[in-house]
Design a binder for these strands. Sequence first.
DNA 1: GACTCCCGCCAAAGC
DNA 2: GCTTTGGCGGGAGTC
Length: 893
Amino acid sequence: MQPAGGEMGTGDKENHSSEPCRGILKTPLKQAATSHLVLTEIQPDCQPLTTPPKPKEILPADPWTPTSNLKMLISAASPEIRSREQRRELSNNANMVLHMKHCLQEHLSGDEYEKTQPSRKEKSLGLLCHKFLARYPDYPSTAENNYICLDEVAEELNVERRRIYDILNVLESLHMVSRLAKNRYAWHGRHNLSKTLQALKKVGEENKYTQQIQMVKKREYEHEFDVDGERNEDMARSFGLNENSEISFVELPGMEFRAASVNSRKDKSLRVMSQKFVMLFLVSTPQIVSLEVAAKILIGEDQLEDLDKSKFKTKIRRLYDIANVLSSLELIKKVHVTEERGRKPAFKWTGPEVLPSVQEPIPSKQQCSKNLFPSRGKQNFTRHSSLIKLVKSIENDRRKIQSAPTSPVKISAGTHQDFAAFPSEMAQLPAITEHKLEEQSKKAEEMKMNLSGSALECGLSLPKTVSEPEPPCTAAAAQQPALTQPLIACLPSHSSVSPVILPHTPSGVSYTIYLHPSQAHTVTTYSPSFMLQPLPGANVTGIKSINSKVLNKITTEEGDNQIATDDVTKTLTTTERPTIKSETASQQCLKRSQTLQESHLIKRYRKDEENLGTSLGDSTKDERLPSNSSQMTHEMDSFLEERQNKTETLDQNMVSCYDQGRREDIPEDEDKIKTKQDIPVAFAIPAPETFFPSGYLIPLTQCAHGNKAGFLNKEKAGTHSLQHTTYSSPIAGVIPVTASELKAVNIPAFHITPLNIMLSPTSIAAAPVLSNSCLSSSNTSSAPSPSSSVLNFTLQHVGLTPAGVQVPANPVLQHMVVPSQPENVSHSSENLQEGQPSVPKEPQEPQTVTENFFRTPGGPNSVSSPSATSDGTDRISQGTLYIPQRKLEVSED
DNA sequence: GACTCCCGCCAAAGC
DNA sequence: GCTTTGGCGGGAGTC
């Protein structure tokens, strides 16, 4: 047991393998010898030892007193009471245990004592974590003293400090605790958990974890993944694992790590591993991750040369450690996945469903970057050079912000030592931008007043954004990107192209109208494989890096999954690189085109403005949209007529496309699962010479949390005054349109299925004629706006929406289309599921889960989103991967 | 024999 | 130079 070299260790370290009291700490030993006695005095109810119960019988959460029922009732009535009770009981219990143990040591010896020791299982990290968690309330009040003294905890729980570190590291990864100082942590409970999970999910999506999982599984399935083979290296390289190694610890505002030590070894730290592990769950569907896959992915992210068995085993060990803690938190549950190759340990996510949030923005990439380049402390770790540029850019913007009149004084490093709740400079950014927004808001109000009689009549309203917090596309916004997806529009003050943020469907999937003028020029023939890039709003990786060429490849090379994937991943992983570098010719072309459009837009806007006799701020100017609704309506009408035939062809092509990509081994139930799920499609109608900010719709995430998109915007802001980057989103759906279709009209984004073309309520805002209605979204009005009526009429007229389906002009207020045929309307996974009783609910254990990690959707009769879950679009977006279908039997232990 | 994961060595970082 | 932190892997316990 004792390692050969561990005879003495570091002298003062654990050397108790032969001692009876091996659990007693070394460092606090001097206290340990007396502390329990002292505590015993404090706890008079700690009875002298008569019949010492086994420690295993004293579970903190279990009532063991005659009044336990009463206590339970009381605690059920009040979580606070429960927490206090738990802590008190635990404390008493721990003290009792200490005391008993001490007595045992005195009275027993050798084997006798060993027999009284808890079994290995009873000393598990999971159980220890349970005890630990029982000490603290899930939702501590700030008034409470929520400090954790490491020594005390270790002592009271009768474990080595080392084990406490394991727990704390995992809890830290979830921001349930934060380190304050040496030996001192702060307990935050689950207050930050949802935010953290959202952030993790976002980062996981950004880093294409889903794809990595698919790739690993695919390789596994093909028996091509041998632990130490060259293929692994190739594989890892092929999907950019190395690039993704730059994923660092995901922080929350105000929760940044204070100690440099935290950053020093973080690349392999349990924290980061834990976060990555959680990410895997959050991006997976089903949310079951096998240890093997997780380990391989995590190894892949470290160093390719580490892909050996020992590393693998070590990783597995660590994953067990993490999993034990996560299990104690009831975030995951151990299961076994049985497939052809045998029964494999896996874990199933049992934590809260993590949906894209509409709450405050949570920085992701910036937070990571910040962590990579802490403002203080040693930076004795190296990172990819591309990140250096990226972070420099961030720092530049940060400086700009801080030098702004409204910028807060930079917090000194010392202040960062304070309690985690103290706002960091990052955390203050919302306040900065909020201030700016207030000004914009006033202007917007003013403008709205002025426009109320005309613009609204024309179906125009101002983007909702104006009155909302932080448009992340500003420089400040880029500093404070949101992982969440607030219902705000991105209003880059520098851009006349309003990147309208669409409200999200409950599934959290937002869509981008993907307008790529360069593509419009170059893609003159319809390519079915080019048509669909489902756009999970959360997934913003590669926004700035992927180009049309890659997009094309992604979708056209379905026949060659590997190649396509390689390209995708390689490209996607370049998102860490500076934007400018990753700009493609097509993007530059787009920029020019866009600038031209914007120029037109501004001119046109100013003309309108003059007519209206209003004076608007720059920022709001740019948000304006043409008010010539009649012209637009006409144009739209004609366009839609023209488009109708096209759409029919499109549907057929889509079916064909998916059928092409489909392979054998698809389970019978697949169609059940997949049917009636609409494929979210961002529908792009290039309008090269229009005055409209055509379809540059940025999914909220891209804009709001300002990941790559935010950076890109920010970066481009310096050189390009009028633009944004949505067009370059790799996940934006693209339906190429020929030049003949280049109308001065925008078409809203659609959800398109082979059988139905669904008009996403969220995408209605994509239509410029409607997008301004966002502005008034705060003023709830259920009456359909004129634009809505026009659109509904038009769409129904051309058969794009079923009769009776009302498309709200204000997507924020009217999330849902009111369908007369609910099954045809794709809003969210939940709704889909509701409308699909045939979709099997998660079966009881043991369960058989179709491992539909990714499959080319659709079958002979079904071409639809493969997912009934919120991340279903993810899988579509990763549609270049094809995993042969397998049946997995998932059994929970 | 495989799986699980405790245990503690020992090095890095902090003080 | 001591202490704290935590990566790491041996190997014990369990299935």
